[in-house]
C-alpha cells in the first residue's frame, strides 16, 4: 500500500465524489476514478450527467458536497496556477480587447505566462488584437478563451465542450494546436464533448459518466480491446452463460448483434469485430444498467492513500 514510485503520476483522482444542487438531486454521486498524468481524456456522458460539474469542481470553482477530489496532488484550487479551465459558455470580459484580455492573462499568471503562445493562437485565427471581445463571434471567442487557457502553460487542462462553437476547419486546426501543445509539454487534458468521433482521434483515455458515476474509464485501446461486437445465431443468454457481459444486443436479420465485455475468447460460432469508440460509447449510453468498468490505471487508490 506504500506509494509506489513505478506507478504513473496521477493528475486527478476522485473518491466517492458527490455534488448536489439544492433539491434538484445529485449531479454526481459516489464518483470515483483516477486520471493518470499525461493522458488526453475524453469526458463523455448524456446531458446532465455531471460533466461540467466535475470539471468545475476540479478547477476549484465549486465545492464538492461529499467525497474527495485530488488535483495535481493537492486539493482543488490549491494549484490554480497549474490548472486551466475552459467553461462551456467561454466567459470573457466583453469590454476588453483581445490584447487586453491577453495582458490580463499575463498579469494574473505572472509565473507561467507564455505570451508568444497565446498570441500565436489568436493570430492563427486572423483576429485583430485591437478588436473588442463583445464584437467577436462565438467561435472567435472560443479561440481567445483557448489562447488564455494555453497561455498559462497548465499542467492540467479542463475543457468543457471546447470546440462546440467552431466551424469544422477551425475545429480541426485548434484541436491540432491543442494536441500538439499537450504532447509537447506532457499536459494532461480532460475534455468533455458530445462529438465522440472527434474525440476518438484526439484522445487516448475515456471517462464515461452516467447516473452520477464513472461507468467506463480507462485507456481507449484497453477499453476497446475489452469489448467485442459479436454477430451470430444465438441469444444474449448464450453469451452470458459463457461469462461475457452483454452490454447491448439487438436482433439483426435472423441473428443477433451484441456488444459484449468479454471474459475469455468468444465461442467459434460468433463473428467478432472490435467496436469503434462511438459504438462503445453509444452502447453504454443506451444501457445505463450495464456494470461499470474501470481499467486498473483509472481505478482510484484505496482510501487510505488518498486521505
Amino acid at each position: 500500500m506504500s506509494s509506489t514510485s513505478t506507478a504513473p503520476a496521477v493528475a486527478l483522482e476522485a473518491s466517492g465524489l458527490g455534488k448536489r444542487y439544492g433539491r434538484q438531486g445529485a449531479a454526481l454521486e459516489d464518483c470515483s476514478f483516477r486520471l493518470p498524468a499525461g493522458r488526453i481524456s475524453a469526458l463523455v456522458g448524456p446531458n446532465g450527467a455531471g460533466k461540467s460539474t466535475l470539471l468545475a469542481m476540479a478547477a476549484g470553482l465549486l465545492r464538492p458536497t461529499s467525497g474527495t477530489l485530488t488535483v495535481l496532488d493537492g486539493a482543488p484550487g490549491e494549484h490554480r496556477d497549474r490548472v486551466a479551465h475552459l467553461a462551456q459558455n467561454k466567459p470573457l470580459y466583453p469590454q476588453l480587447t483581445i490584447a487586453e484580455t491577453l495582458s490580463m492573462g499575463a498579469e494574473l499568471n505572472p509565473a507561467r505566462w507564455d505570451a508568444a503562445c497565446a498570441a500565436r493562437i489568436v493570430e492563427q485565427g486572423g483576429l485583430d488584437p485591437k478588436s473588442r471581445i463583445r464584437s467577436l463571434s462565438g467561435g472567435q471567442r472560443t479561440r481567445v478563451a483557448l489562447a488564455l487557457a494555453l497561455g498559462k502553460r497548465p499542467e492540467l487542462m479542463l475543457l468543457d465542450e471546447p470546440m462546440a462553437d467552431l466551424d469544422p476547419l477551425a475545429r480541426h486546426e485548434l484541436m491540432g494546436t491543442l494536441m500538439a501543445d499537450a504532447a509537447e509539454h506532457g499536459t494532461t487534458v480532460l475534455m468533455s464533448s458530445h462529438i465522440v468521433a472527434e474525440l476518438a482521434d484526439a484522445c487516448d483515455h475515456l471517462l464515461l459518466l452516467g447516473g452520477g458515476r464513472v461507468r467506463l474509464g480507462g485507456g481507449i485501446d484497453d477499453l476497446l480491446t475489452a469489448h467485442t461486437v459479436v454477430t451470430g445465431r444465438g441469444t444474449p443468454e448464450d453469451l452470458t452463460r459463457r461469462g461475457h457481459t452483454v452490454i447491448e444486443s439487438r436482433t439483426a436479420g435472423r441473428g443477433l448483434t451484441a456488444l459484449v465485455r468479454r471474459d475469455g475468447p468468444v465461442d467459434e460460432g460468433w463473428a467478432t469485430e472490435e467496436p469503434s469508440l462511438e459504438e462503445l460509447v453509444l452502447a453504454h449510453l443506451r444501457a445505463p444498467a450495464a456494470p461499470a468498468l474501470l481499467t486498473p490505471s483509472t481505478t482510484p487508490a484505496p482510501q487510505a492513500v488518498t486521505a
Binding site: 470553482l61 490554480r80 467553461a87 494574473l108 507561467r112
Partner: peptide, 8 residues
C-alpha cells in the same frame, strides 16, 4: 470563474 481559474 474565469478569474478564479487564472492563478488567483
Amino acid at each position: 470563474q474565469l478569474a478564479w481559474t487564472q492563478s488567483v
